[in-house]
Nucleic acid binder design. Structure first.
Lengths: 207, 207
DNA sequence: ACGGTTCTGTACTGGGTTGTCAATAACGGT
DNA sequence: ACCGTTATTGACAACCCAGTACAGAACCGT
């Protein structure tokens, strides 16, 4: 009946996300988005309602991606929970990739959590962005906390520790490496931070 | 011989820093800086070489402030070292104030470490900013590591732990709370994260 | 009191930005 | 093959922004 879209919506949002993560929100112009996605201004406004709309929808896509991959990496049987937590921690400190099968961006500052970067840059004056970013955090916190509980059930983590507190702390560390990485510290340094954090997890007392 | 400056350089840089921390670098216009500081464009360019110059000099001032206050808060006799670390951690997770005697900004995202915010926003394309931000981190890392060593000498922290690794981890957590705070989490949540981190510090084994 | 020197404020310019509009192209049902 | 509907394109206007230039003001040594 009518002309169909000639672009793939997710592909466009991915390209926009990469641009936002690289240049920040205020450092990205509509022309930049247009160049990165191949879409003209008109199409961008018709389909996404302009720069801010692109951001919100890109963040929504990011949120959906997190909700899919974090549980996949962390959920599972109790006996492997601690090792899954270890592997997740080691991977997470090197950044959040754009897609599951591509490595994170070469520049660590551009590999930082999309939601975190946007919340820090414009969250103070954009409550919608702040809310979306917090949703991203929550979905991760839930998945990590669940994995901590699994490790506790398996006797690998002190059962007296509060799994939610521990999950918040671990995610705070992971987000912290976004910042430390942006300072220019090496991959090895970030790995070392992750290992230190893992080593300090409260183990059950030997009786 | 010539007309003296009518403004206080540090006061101007403080006002600019507050503006940058609130709106980000790209979100701040020269007019914003002009309004925040009360200086006209001409003076800004003559004294600080424009927007980018203001940023660099504001960051240099921030660095100098950190180099003065962090050791003051952390250095001291070995016997109080662990408690100083505890107090520092609890205070730091609520943000970095503009000056020693004022509380951090009410909005947590604007209270985040100035260096961290700038490094995340523009560090990828501005190596000078990245370097300055890293200097800020280093001065903190040195002070925290020294305090950890003092606590170790006093028998409050496991002497087998690497004090530098521990310092990096603690600062990563502190920077992480900048992000978590920007998501909108309450002060109490940040305090709880700080306490969890402190509780996990490696204590010496009882023999 | 005068003059050289530096600061201060404002107006201006060239470039970049956002959001919109009208003309054109592509599709599918009839 | 036609036509209504929707996407796309490129251009356009209003605006904002960084940086500069210039004219006036303030100071101080003489």
């Amino acid at each position: 009946m009518a002309r169909p879209r000639s672009f793939d919506r997710d592909h466009v949002l991915h390209a926009a996300e990469r641009q936002f993560r690289t240049s920040g929100y205020n450092g990205t112009s509509v022309d930049d988005i247009s160049a990165a996605t191949g879409l003209g201004r008109g199409s961008l406004y018709a389909a996404f309602d302009g720069k801010h709309g692109v951001l919100l929808q890109a963040m929504a896509g990011y949120f959906a991606r997190l909700g899919q991959f974090a549980p996949k990496a962390l959920a599972g049987p109790d006996e492997g929970a601690l090792e899954r937590l270890h592997a997740y921690l080691l991977r997470a400190v090197h950044g959040v990739p754009l897609a599951a099968d591509v490595p994170p961006a070469p520049d660590r500052a551009a590999a930082a959590c999309f939601a975190a970067k946007m919340a820090l840059e414009i969250g103070a004056s954009d409550s919608e962005v702040k809310r979306l970013a917090n949703d991203c955090f929550s979905v991760l916190a839930t998945a990590v906390a669940e994995c901590v509980r699994a490790a506790q059930r398996n006797g690998d983590i002190d059962p007296d520790a509060d799994p939610d507190d521990l999950a918040y702390l671990l995610l705070t560390i992971i987000r912290g490496t976004d910042v430390v990485g942006a300072y220019g510290h090496s991959s090895d340094r970030l790995t070392s931070i992750a290992e230190s954090a893992f080593a300090l997890l409260p183990r059950p007392r030997h009786h």
